[in-house]
């Protein structure tokens, strides 16, 4: 008798295994990062409307809601950066007759690069704004 039982995926499949939950958490970093990008857009929009509007937007950033969004976006960005760079050596494989780089070296290069770029951006912003205020 041939009567196979067809297993259909349940909508809550991702809750049933820690590996799937980690995957969904990684994908969910997109939500706060999307909202954060909209916040950046709103800042640019207020800038186009003139100095007063922009300064009002700047003050609005102190609101607890937007600080909470920043906190969430920071956690998401960090988790994204760590999980993203962990996967880079699986996709970026440098293995030719002339040049060969180990996956560990590819990963390390990206980790160092990310730390330098992120810290550099923050430092640059602080220094530039200090210099601008000093003039």
């Amino acid at each position: 008798m041939h009567k196979p039982y067809i297993q259909r995926q349940r909508a809550d499949w991702w809750l049933r295994n820690p590996a799937y939950r980690r995957y969904m958490l990684r994908e969910a970093t997109a939500l706060p990062l999307f909202l954060y990008t909209l916040l950046l857009m709103s800042g640019l929009f207020q800038f186009t409307r003139g100095e007063a509007a922009f300064l009002q937007w700047l003050e609005m950033l102190r609101s607890p809601w937007l600080l909470a969004l920043h906190g969430l976006a920071l956690a998401a960005a960090l988790f994204h950066a760590v999980t993203w760079i962990a996967l880079v050596p699986k996709i970026l494989v440098i293995d030719t007759d002339r040049l060969r780089v180990s996956p560990a070296a590819v990963k390390l290069a990206h980790q160092v690069g990310a730390v330098v770029c992120n810290a550099g951006l923050l430092l640059l912003a602080v220094l530039l704004l200090r210099a601008a205020a000093g003039n």
Binding site: A77, A81, W84, I85, N118
Partner: peptide, 8 residues
């Protein structure tokens, strides 16, 4: 985002 997300 990995390279400048957290810093930004």
């Amino acid at each position: 985002l990995a390279f400048i997300g957290p810093g930004l």
